[in-house]
Structure formats: C-alpha cells, structure tokens
Amino acid sequence: MSTAVVQHIAKLANIPITSAEEKKLADGFTTTLGVVDQLKKLDTSTVEPTHQVTGLQNVLRDDGIDRDRMFTQEQALANALHTHNGYIVVEQILDQE
C-alpha cells in the first residue's frame, strides 16, 4: 500500500497522522493485507455472507419515550469540553453570509 493511499484513508477516517507515520502505517497495512489475502484460497462463489450470528430478525422496540434513559441537561453536558448557555459549542462548519 502506498503512502498516497494512506493519506487518503487518513482523510476519510479523520485521523491526523504525521508524514513519519505514513510510511510505517503503509508497511503495516501491506503486511496485514497479505494475511487477509489468504482468504482468496477458499472458494466462496456460492456462499452467502454472514453479518450477524444471532438469527434474530427485525427486533423492534415500542415507539415511546423511556424516561429511565433520559438525561437531564446537566448530565448531557457534563462531559463536553466546551459549553455555552446550556449548549455544546461546536466548530463552525457553514460560512456566514
């Protein structure tokens, strides 16, 4: 895997990496994908993929409010680094026009 691909993935995954890390990560991924490539040896052309093993289907809950699970405003804000007037402060993502 090239460092260019690593840069692209880092952007997709929103993971800040340094240029020194890029090469190391690329080498590590190449090793790991080499192990994964062993899977090609098995013929799976007629096999359905398994996404979950429980066999459960369409597990639904009542469409109602569970008051036991509600946070107070204080609880909801307790772990946020930046708050203002009872709101969580986030970075601006829209231009002011």
Partner: peptide
Amino acid sequence: IRYGHDRTHFGDEAKRRIML
C-alpha cells in the same frame, strides 16, 4: 465534542485499526 477528547488522542493501534 459531546464527551472525550479529539481524534489526535488515538494511540497507534487504534489509528491502525480505524484506518484499515
């Protein structure tokens, strides 16, 4: 934003796994 610290705080192994 809501809790915890930003994504610069991930260690090497988490970075590797998230990215792969």
